[in-house]
Simulated scan of single mutants.
Amino acid sequence: MEVIIAAIGVGILLGWLDIFSYRVKLWLNRLSTVCLFLMLICLGAKIGCDANLLGQIERLGRQSLLLGGSAILGSLLLVYVVIKLLAPDFAKEERP
Rank of each mutant, 00 (worst) to 15 (best):
S75F: 13
G68R: 10
V10Q: 06
L73T: 02
S64P: 07
D89I: 07
L77F: 06
E58W: 10
S70Y: 12
S70H: 11
C35I: 11
L65D: 15
L73P: 03
F90V: 04
G9W: 12
I41V: 12
L14V: 04
L13N: 02
L65C: 13
K46I: 01
Q63K: 10
S21K: 06
G15Y: 04
G48I: 05
K84D: 05
K84Q: 08
R62Y: 09
A87V: 11
L31N: 04
L40F: 05
E93N: 05
G48K: 06
L77P: 00
G68W: 09
L60F: 10
K46C: 07
A6K: 02
I19S: 01
F90I: 00
P96D: 15
L28E: 00
L54D: 13
L65S: 13
L28H: 00
E58D: 13
G55P: 00
I41F: 03
C35H: 08
C49I: 15
C35R: 08
I4C: 04
C35M: 12
Q63D: 14
A71T: 12
K84V: 06
R30L: 02
I57C: 15
I41Y: 01
I12Y: 02
L14R: 05
P88Q: 06
L76E: 13
S21F: 08
L31E: 03
A51L: 15
L78I: 05
I5C: 14
A87T: 10
L85M: 13
P88H: 00
E94K: 10
I47R: 05
F37N: 01
L28S: 04
A51P: 07
I8H: 06
Y22M: 09
V3K: 03
Q63C: 14
D50I: 15
K84N: 05
L66S: 14
G69D: 13
L65M: 15
V10L: 11
I12Q: 09
Y80G: 05
G11I: 02
L36W: 06
